[in-house]
Design a protein around this nucleic acid. Sequence first.
DNA 1: TAAGTTCACTTAACCGTTTTCGTATTCTTA
DNA 2: TAAGAATACGAAAACGGTTAAGTGAACTTA
Lengths: 338, 338
Amino acid sequence: MVSMKDISIACGVSVATVSKALNDHNDIGSETKKYIKKVADEMGYLPNSMAKALKTNRTYNIGVLFAEEAYSGLTHDYYAFVLDSFKNTVEERGYDITFINSAKARSERISYLEHCRSRGFDGIAIVCADFYSPEIMQLVRGNIPTVTLDHIFNNVSAVMSNNVQGMQDLLTYIYEKGHRRIAFIHGADSAVTQSRLSSFYRTAAQLGLEIPDEYISMAPYRDTTATYKETMRLLDLKERPTCIIYPDDFAAFGGINAIKERGLQLPKDISVAGYDGIRIARHIEPTLTSLAQNTQKLGQKAGEKLISLIEHPKTTLIERILVDGHVYEGNSVADLNA
Amino acid sequence: MVSMKDISIACGVSVATVSKALNDHNDIGSETKKYIKKVADEMGYLPNSMAKALKTNRTYNIGVLFAEEAYSGLTHDYYAFVLDSFKNTVEERGYDITFINSAKARSERISYLEHCRSRGFDGIAIVCADFYSPEIMQLVRGNIPTVTLDHIFNNVSAVMSNNVQGMQDLLTYIYEKGHRRIAFIHGADSAVTQSRLSSFYRTAAQLGLEIPDEYISMAPYRDTTATYKETMRLLDLKERPTCIIYPDDFAAFGGINAIKERGLQLPKDISVAGYDGIRIARHIEPTLTSLAQNTQKLGQKAGEKLISLIEHPKTTLIERILVDGHVYEGNSVADLNA
DNA sequence: TAAGTTCACTTAACCGTTTTCGTATTCTTA
DNA sequence: TAAGAATACGAAAACGGTTAAGTGAACTTA
C-alpha cells in the first residue's frame, strides 16, 4: 500500500505537506496542492483508515445492533428494510456500518459496550434487541452517540414508528368500511404493543365502538400457530367479529388459515387486517390490508439523527422522532356499506 | 479510554511488558503477568483495535458486499438468512462484519476495492452483487482473500447452493407423485438459472419425461406479475401441465393467484412448487412445496472458508463448495398416485 | 528601510499498539 | 567459581497518519 511517505518522497516535500494538501488545508500553495494530488492519484494512494482513526479519534464507522431473537432481526422484513435505508443514508455521508456483537474473542466474551469502545464506533444504532437486558442498559449509558429504533431510553434519541397514529388510522379505516365488531389480537407485551393497544382502545372509544373483552387477546408476533388458535376462538363466539386485526402481517396468515379451514370466504364472511405492510402480503390473494410502516423514512431519520449527534453533539437535541405509516389498502377488509 | 501506558504506570512496568503480558508472551514472569492482567481488568482496559490493526496489519474485520438490486439484498429471505449464518460464524471466531460500499466520501466516489483497501478488511464476502460489473471484477482481482456466494470466479473460492442436485430432487419428487406434464418457469438468465434449467432438462430426460417447449418459459425472480401471466398462458394450453415449478417461492404466489382466479383448486386441479423455502410459504395454505436451500450451512461454509483463507493462505485451497438443499414437502403438489 | 505580516512549507510530537534487540539478574554446569 | 545459558524485563523504533509550533522568504506598511 502506498503511504503518504511514498508520496512525499515522490514529490520532494514533507509528509505533513502531503497530508495538508490532500485534506485541502489552506496553508499549502495551490500549485503544490494540485501536484501532490495528481501524484497521489497516479500512485493509487488510499488513506489508511486505521491510522487516521488512531490520530483523530474518528472512525467513520457506526455500530449497529441487530440481536436476533427468534424470527426477528436480519431476517425480518421490517427490520431489514429499516436497516437498508439506514445503511444507505449513512453511507451517503461517508460512514460505514459494522455489526455490534458480544462474541468477540474466541475465549472471553465481551459486552456490547466493550465491543463498541474497542472498535471506536463514532455512534451506534440499536435496531433490534432485548431492550431490557443489562447489557443494553450498559450500552446506552456508555456515552457513545446513540439512536434506538422503536424504543425509548432516557437521554437517547429514538426513532419510532407512530403506532398510536397507525392503529388509529387502521381502526378508523376499518370502521369507515362499516365494521362495528372488531377484534384485535395484539402482540406480546412491549412498548410497541402498548402503544397500539392503548390507541386501539382510545380510537374505539372515540368512534363509539363497543369492544367486548373477548375480542382482545394476545398472540406473540409472527406466531401463526397462536393466531390460528385465537382466530378459531373468535370464530366460535356467538357474536363473532366482522374483522380481526392481527399483531403483524406474518401472523395474520395463521388467522387466515383458520378462517379458510372453517370454510369461510375472505373477506366476504370475515375481514382481516395486518400490521407492517410486508411485501409478500401484497402479492397473495386476498391482498392484505395492513398498516404499512414507513421503513424508508425510519431508517433515514435514524441515520440523519445519529450523524447529527456525532457531528454536532452540542447543538443536536435528544429527541424522539415519530414516523407515520399509512394504511395499505388490500382487499382483505370488506366494505359493508356497499 | 485507558491505554497500555496507563497500566504500565499503574504497575510500574514498561508498556512493552504490558503488551507482552496481555498477549501471553512467554518472556514475562508469571507473577508479573498475573498482576498486570488483574490491574488491566480492574482499570477496564480495552485494546484499541485501530492501533492494533495499524501495527499488525490485521483488522479482524470482514467486508461484506450486499449490493441491492431490485428486491434482492438485505430484504431477501435467502440472502438475509445466509448473511445471518455467515455473521454468526465469523463473529464466533473474533471477526466483525462491515458492509462494503462505494459511496464513501461525500464528494468523490470510490470503488469497492478501494473501500476495502482503505478499511483494511482481512477478507471479503460477495454475497449478492452484479457479478458482471467491472467494479466486481476489480474487487475479486484485488488480492484480498475472498469468497463468493452462488457465483464462480477464477481463483476465488465459492460457496454454491447445489442447484443441479436441488432441481433434480425437486423434479424427481414431483415425478414420484405421479406427475408427467411438468412445466418450469425459470428465472432470468444467470449462472444459477443455467444450473437449474440444465438440471431440469437432464433429469427430465432421465425420468423419460416429455417436456414440450411451451412448458418452459421465463419470469424474472420475485416477479409475481410475470409469473401470473406465464401461468395464465400455461393454463390456456390445450394440454396443460399438472404441475408448475416457479423461479422462486415469492414468484410462485403470482402463479397461485392466477390459478385461483381461474377457479381452479390447489392442488387438486393443478400443483405448484417453488424454490428457496422461504418461511412465509410454510404458513400459507396450501403450504408450498419447495426446494429449501440450506442457508445456515451456506453462510457457515462461506465463513469458515474465508477465515481459513485469511489465516492459512498458503495451505487453504481455492475451491467451490456445494451445499445441498432438500425438498420441503408442503401440500401444494398433489399425489396423483393415490 | 526596518519591522511586522503573510505565505508556504518543515519539524517533531503524538495517537496506542507490537516487536526487535539489548541488558541486568539469576541459574547452570564443569 | 567463572563462564555460558536462561529468564525477565526495558528502550526504542515502527505502523501511517494529523497538527501545533516553528522557520525562512517574500511582501507590506509606515
